[in-house]
Design a protein around this nucleic acid. Structure first.
Lengths: 154, 154
DNA sequence: TGCAATTAAATTGTGTGCAATATAAATTTG
DNA sequence: CAAATTTATATTGCACACAATTTAATTGCA
């Protein structure tokens, strides 16, 4: 935690201007990005957060609900109903761990695994819309990760 | 729109890795930022999207629902119920425009205007958590705005 | 061993986001 | 000037996010 910075009243009012808010830039850009994904993911029958869960599972499955939540920084209040919808859609299974009955293990079904091939086309389709060079996009992504770490709760 | 880039299958699979996704970096960082705001805004009795609406109104009020939506990139499906909650909380009024009965004009109440003074402390409190220099924060913000514009629907 | 503390997931309740649709008022046009 | 079109907001329905709480299982420790 850095030392608190004393600011004048005009400076504090200036900081409240929408265009000066880093947080609003994040918020609005994320909303737009998600809206852009929506029609592409709708063809696969999933939403953006469901896509994120599948990205995690395509890298490694099966995984517990908690392990998925750790990767995505989401809690069971968000994940439990989302995973039930993915189960209903036939992309994952939810089975309680016999070794530790508190855990629920999420696995990919055949359909869930196969969806990966179709999803592989999506990043390229979106890259066209991002008017950044590959290097710029990577730099931005790494800055965001750094900010995300700085915002970690402790 | 830039030209489509042909990619190999391994490259497409690599692009699906969570850690390579700019979009997930945006998503996760925004969620964290909002969580960080939450306890500060709760003291004022508002949520983060409600805070954004008030930021817009503190710069200029009264404004129509549509004008607020244009600033925040939100539609009436999001704003109408949110504004009703701000009205119930006593921070704004919602009055149909007599000159154009389609429009609803949102104004600040005395309580809504006064909330600005207390809110003015918030950006400084959050700046402490963001481990970026002022220049870095501004650079990141401007890159995000550029990306946001690139993602504009047409 | 026995029980308090911890952990994992589910549940409850509130507030967004947004697509799709509905409603009503204003504007355009033939 | 009346019908078709457009515009502004509201409504409906669905899927998140997340705080707070609950439930059940495991771990720690006296």
């Amino acid at each position: 935690m850095t030392k608190p910075v004393k600011t004048s009243r005009p400076a504090r009012i200036e900081a409240l201007r929408l265009e000066n808010q880093l947080c609003f830039a994040l918020y609005a850009t994320t909303n737009r990005m998600t809206r852009l994904y929506q029609p592409l993911l709708a063809e696969l029958g999933i939403t953006y957060p469901q896509y994120l869960v599948l990205l995690v599972l395509w890298e490694q499955a099966p995984r517990s609900v908690g392990a998925i939540g750790q990767e995505l920084d989401l809690d069971s209040g968000t994940l439990t109903p989302l995973l039930k919808r993915l189960e209903t859609a036939g992309f994952v299974t939810r089975i309680r761990d016999t070794a530790d009955e508190r855990r629920v293990i999420i696995s990919l079904t055949e359909a869930g695994a196969q969806l990966r091939e179709r999803a592989a086309e999506i990043p390229g389709q979106l890259a066209c819309r991002v008017q950044l060079s590959r290097a710029e996009a990577i730099a931005l992504r790494e800055q965001l990760k750094q900010l995300q770490r700085a915002l970690a709760m402790d």
